[in-house]
Simulated scan of single mutants.
Amino acid sequence: MKLKYALVTGGSRGIGKAIALKLAEDLGYNILLNFHSDENAALETQKLIVAKQVRCELLKFDVSNTEEVSQLLEEWAIKNPENTIEVLINNAGITKDGLFIWTKPEDWRSVINTSLNGFYNCSQAVLKNMLTQRYGRIINIVSLSGLKGNPGQVNYSAAKGAVIAATKALAQEIGKRKVTVNAVAPGFIKSDMTADFDEASLKKMIPLNRFGETEEVANLVSFLASEKSSYITGEVININGGLYS
């Protein structure tokens, strides 16, 4: 029996975890859960996904490593000739915040490589099959920082801004094959990445007067991954409580 999978990068915690659970629950997708280092968190998330009555396989790789991504996903495809990856969620990302003048070359490269090269590596690895089967969903998790810029995050803003531009361009290339490419741009969402933020102060800038929940981002991604979104491509959808549009 042919099984349909969604690949979620950086899926062990935070927004990625919420997305993986929602795709399993709402759309019945089996999940390929990518993680880089936190195996314990990945195993815990795997248990929660399996409880949704779908399969969940863990894939440990660094999204910024072209050879590693290509090799592991090619090996998976060989072992699963009847199965297919219909949905790709490019969620993996890191921050190395600080004023640009003090940004070290390695902090610039690592942030760019994870978000931008991660998009390239993972999308390249699954796109040919999506085009062949004439169906697919690529959803890139970007950021408010990539749209308006954010002081102290020049590297992160550059990385996410580049993925936004790539989203729009790729959508135009492959739309005829019924493969859509969209981006979701969260604002302040409660997660590990915002744990050290001054929520009490920052929420005063947000019209809805609160940080968002990871599940709210996951709800949007679930819609974009479904057939209900079949006429939406090349879009960047904000989910930020009205902070920026």
Results as ranks from 00 to 15, higher is better:
175 G>K: 14
140 N>Y: 03
143 S>E: 10
161 G>F: 12
174 I>T: 12
169 A>E: 07
191 S>Q: 02
148 K>N: 13
146 G>K: 03
158 A>P: 02
164 I>T: 07
180 T>F: 10
147 L>S: 14
139 I>R: 08
163 V>N: 05
150 N>G: 00
145 S>L: 01
152 G>L: 08
184 V>M: 08
164 I>G: 06
138 I>G: 00
193 M>T: 01
166 A>K: 03
139 I>E: 06
166 A>S: 14
194 T>L: 03
143 S>V: 05
148 K>Y: 01
178 K>R: 15
163 V>W: 01
139 I>H: 09
137 R>M: 01
152 G>A: 12
153 Q>T: 08
165 A>E: 10
185 A>T: 05
182 N>T: 08
177 R>M: 11
154 V>M: 13
171 A>V: 06
152 G>C: 09
170 L>V: 11
174 I>W: 12
158 A>H: 05
141 I>P: 03
162 A>C: 12
160 K>P: 07
187 G>F: 01
172 Q>S: 14
138 I>S: 02
183 A>T: 05
140 N>P: 04
194 T>Q: 04
175 G>Y: 14
169 A>Y: 04
140 N>E: 05
184 V>A: 06
142 V>T: 15
169 A>I: 05
168 K>N: 05
159 A>I: 05
169 A>W: 02
144 L>R: 11
140 N>V: 03
184 V>L: 09
161 G>R: 14
145 S>N: 15
165 A>F: 01
137 R>P: 00
172 Q>R: 15
157 S>V: 08
158 A>R: 04
159 A>W: 06
144 L>F: 09
192 D>N: 15
184 V>Y: 05
161 G>E: 10
182 N>I: 07
168 K>V: 04
162 A>H: 13
180 T>K: 12
167 T>I: 08
177 R>E: 15
169 A>K: 10
193 M>K: 02
169 A>D: 05
170 L>H: 08
152 G>S: 12
150 N>I: 00
175 G>L: 12
147 L>R: 15
177 R>F: 15
149 G>I: 11
140 N>W: 02
142 V>A: 14
173 E>P: 03
141 I>H: 07
186 P>M: 10
173 E>N: 13
183 A>Q: 03
146 G>D: 04
142 V>G: 06
166 A>I: 06
163 V>S: 03
164 I>V: 15
180 T>Q: 14
154 V>A: 15
182 N>Q: 12
139 I>S: 10
155 N>T: 07
159 A>H: 08
164 I>Q: 09
151 P>E: 14
160 K>M: 09
173 E>W: 06
188 F>H: 12
194 T>W: 02
192 D>W: 00
144 L>Y: 09
171 A>M: 08
192 D>C: 00
177 R>V: 00
151 P>C: 00
151 P>T: 14
170 L>R: 06
148 K>E: 15
193 M>D: 03
182 N>C: 08
185 A>F: 08
166 A>W: 11
151 P>F: 14
163 V>F: 02
174 I>R: 11
151 P>Q: 13
156 Y>C: 01
184 V>Q: 04
164 I>R: 07
144 L>A: 00
159 A>V: 05
174 I>K: 12
169 A>L: 04
164 I>A: 04
171 A>E: 07
164 I>W: 09
185 A>L: 07
149 G>K: 11
163 V>H: 05
174 I>M: 11
167 T>D: 09
